[in-house]
């Protein structure tokens, strides 16, 4: 059935080139999880509403349930597995900015891109970015504290 539409593609994920065979209709989320075993990106709604599947494509956070894998050929994909001991991860740990942890990879990817690209972000900008993810355990105040601490550090070092 769908085998006729499968094709091989090279994806650049977390700095490594990966060869995968996927349907043209497969989302990036599906390929990351089922073909590459990168289960950090989570399915939450498959509708772009919750942000749990957020990954970076050329540095921009996208909802990987809303993008086809084939669209990312030639682009640089970063998933939560590609972040190692970054300030935002440390801040999430120290501020207890997670509980069940399911939305956490998506939130961190979004917050990481924000702190990397917009160190001067004001409250409105922070809200504009982070309101695309839903966290159901925390009050968001913990996440806000984590993000603002990283932004403060970034401004200090720049």
């Amino acid at each position: 059935m769908e085998s006729s539409t499968k094709c091989e593609m090279q994806l650049l994920v977390n700095g490594e080139t990966k060869s995968v065979v996927a349907r043209q209709g497969d989302t990036l989320l599906f390929v990351l999880r089922n073909e590459l075993g990168l289960t950090g990106a989570k399915p939450g709604c498959l509708n772009g509403d919750c942000g749990a599947c957020t990954a970076l494509v050329d540095g921009t956070p996208i909802k990987s349930c809303m993008m086809l894998a084939i669209e990312t050929v030639g682009k640089e994909i970063t998933t939560i597995e590609g972040l190692h001991n970054t300030p935002i991860q440390r801040a999430f740990v120290e501020h207890f900015a997670f509980q069940c942890g399911y939305c956490t990879p998506g939130f961190i990817m979004n917050a990481y891109a924000l702190t990397e690209t917009k160190p001067d972000a004001d409250d409105a900008t922070i809200q504009e970015w982070l309101e695309s993810n839903i966290c159901r355990c925390t009050s968001y105040q913990e996440i806000e504290a984590a993000v603002k601490e990283v932004l403060r550090q970034k401004r200090k070092t720049e």
Partner: peptide, 16 residues
Amino acid sequence: QLRTYRPIRFGEHPEY
């Protein structure tokens, strides 16, 4: 659906 059933989001939270 979470588009039509909309839980509280970041920025809509009060000070706790």
